[in-house]
Measured scan of single mutants.
Amino acid sequence: MAAGGDHGSPDSYRSPLASRYASPEMCFVFSDRYKFRTWRQLWLWLAEAEQTLGLPITDEQIQEMKSNLENIDFKMAAEEEKRLRHDVMAHVHTFGHCCPKAAGIIHLGATSCYVGDNTDLIILRNALDLLLPKLARVISRLADFAKERASLPTLGFTHFQPAQLTTVGKRCCLWIQDLCMDLQNLKRVRDDLRFRGVKGTTGTQASFLQLFEGDDHKVEQLDKMVTEKAGFKRAFIITGQTYTRKVDIEVLSVLASLGASVHKICTDIRLLANLKEMEEPFEKQQIGSSAMPYKRNPMRSERCCSLARHLMTLVMDPLQTASVQWFERTLDDSANRRICLAEAFLTADTILNTLQNISEGLVVYPKVIERRIRQELPFMATENIIMAMVKAGGSRQDCHEKIRVLSQQAASVVKQEGGDNDLIERIQVDAYFSPIHSQLDHLLDPSSFTGRASQQVQRFLEEEVYPLLKPYESVMKVKAELCL
């Protein structure tokens, strides 16, 4: 049975990233139509530049190519590739079939990587351009969430054990800070992308030097003109047959890092959902379990974690691919890159769409948070109580021993009897502590235990987050809708 299948058929496997999760716009960027249309555009740009620099290419040939950029006979191309065992030459023939007058000058002087690699770089750039505003929107939604809850005390956790208090907004800023680093890295790697350009079979530009009869300047002009037509500021000066596969490492490393950030955020949300302090959106008709109707599973956060793990592992592909590119190139890269580049971007696209949807509907339960604080705060307040007693004339050592005994009794009630923490009640009825009984409410005010959390939130948002989001103001209103 021949390899390949009808990918629109229910009898043929289709990647869930495309069929179930990723956005239509990201799927289109990695589609065959987008790819092969870009090949034709690159052939047109090459012909236009070659004509401008004096090669015998007519206006009629150029116009014929322009008129057929979208006229792609995919069936013919597939048949040609089956016959020739070469995808680029299959599309040269297919393009030439609908451009008979231009057929002889299509791909003039070029090698397969002229269309293959340059198209990949265009796709990487455009895919990054799709991700950047999506990530900015996630940051914006979380920034709104953090600002609104900047002063809401909550129990902090280290080692997932109760620690000092923080605020809900401050905790959210930990998430935002990681995503801001990801946004900066995505922008950097996007701006650092260079075009492969017009380089020939081993990167020496020998074929173009021959076409222009040894004119170095025209060869350099050709490279520059096509690079500018493709919208790049610069091209690699040095290439082998391909652009260095280190570029793929750079791009997928940034995406993998984004995956790590999203995994951490969504894990926190899942843990908070278990504590009943916070939940992701839950639709009115949504079913959490087929057997347990009360369940409210954090399905979206779980999906993000599941896909983020996949995204983090994909960076190993370009690392290994770059390491086995012998001399000017081997074909070890080809099949692998067809999979890992598309999957990385479709996965990143999915987790950003999902995280935006989550961040637009996060639900906080202040009463649950308050109750958990009441359970733990008495123990945390013991040092403040000791200091207040010393100020009232008591002995630190005597007070410490009193607190120690009462704390152990209260802990026994919590752990052995399943009761509430009654340390404060014990202190309130103990005559030894009568000098500070009137101060206990103040000493137990949760806001006095959150330090500068709310001020940190305000400063972080104003100095770091809002300036970073400013270039994306025009796209901030787009909502994230999930079908599944």
Rank of each mutant, 00 (worst) to 15 (best):
residue 182 D to T: 08
residue 231 G to R: 06
residue 252 L to A: 13
residue 200 G to K: 01
residue 433 F to D: 12
residue 99 C to E: 15
residue 342 A to F: 00
residue 302 E to S: 00
residue 313 T to P: 03
residue 131 L to H: 05
residue 318 P to R: 04
residue 400 H to W: 04
residue 461 L to Y: 01
residue 442 H to A: 00
residue 265 I to N: 13
residue 466 Y to V: 13
residue 170 K to A: 02
residue 313 T to G: 06
residue 232 F to N: 01
residue 347 T to I: 08
residue 62 I to S: 07
residue 264 K to S: 14
residue 452 R to A: 08
residue 245 R to M: 15
residue 82 K to S: 10
residue 455 Q to M: 00
residue 73 D to T: 15
residue 245 R to E: 06
residue 302 E to I: 10
residue 8 G to V: 10
residue 200 G to P: 02
residue 481 E to K: 02
residue 2 A to G: 10
residue 269 I to G: 01
residue 149 R to N: 07
residue 432 Y to M: 00
residue 232 F to P: 12
residue 459 R to L: 11
residue 35 K to G: 05
residue 64 E to W: 06
residue 93 H to S: 03
residue 394 G to E: 14
residue 359 S to C: 01
residue 101 K to E: 02
residue 396 R to H: 05
residue 88 V to Y: 00
residue 115 V to R: 06
residue 372 R to W: 07
residue 214 G to R: 11
residue 102 A to M: 05
residue 278 M to H: 12
residue 423 L to W: 11
residue 198 V to T: 12
residue 352 L to K: 11
residue 131 L to I: 05
residue 411 A to D: 12
residue 468 L to S: 14
residue 285 Q to V: 00
residue 339 I to E: 06
residue 474 S to H: 07
residue 61 Q to W: 06
residue 393 G to Y: 03
residue 247 V to A: 13
residue 168 V to E: 07
residue 383 E to R: 10
residue 324 V to L: 06
residue 454 S to M: 14
residue 203 G to F: 01
residue 108 L to N: 03
residue 29 V to C: 09
residue 450 T to S: 01
residue 240 G to F: 03
residue 398 D to F: 01
residue 64 E to L: 08
residue 328 E to R: 07
residue 115 V to G: 06
residue 106 I to L: 06
residue 417 E to R: 13
residue 77 A to G: 11
residue 366 P to R: 07
residue 475 V to M: 10
residue 306 S to I: 08
residue 125 R to T: 13
residue 46 L to K: 07
residue 389 M to Y: 02
residue 37 R to D: 15
residue 343 E to Y: 15
residue 402 K to H: 11
residue 214 G to V: 05
residue 23 S to D: 15
residue 240 G to A: 02
residue 472 Y to F: 14
residue 466 Y to N: 02
residue 456 Q to E: 02
residue 167 T to H: 15
residue 253 S to T: 13
residue 334 S to Y: 07
residue 456 Q to G: 06
residue 349 D to Y: 09
residue 65 M to C: 06
residue 236 F to S: 08
residue 93 H to V: 04
residue 411 A to T: 12
residue 288 G to K: 02
residue 149 R to Y: 01
residue 433 F to G: 03
residue 450 T to L: 10
residue 339 I to K: 08
residue 324 V to T: 12
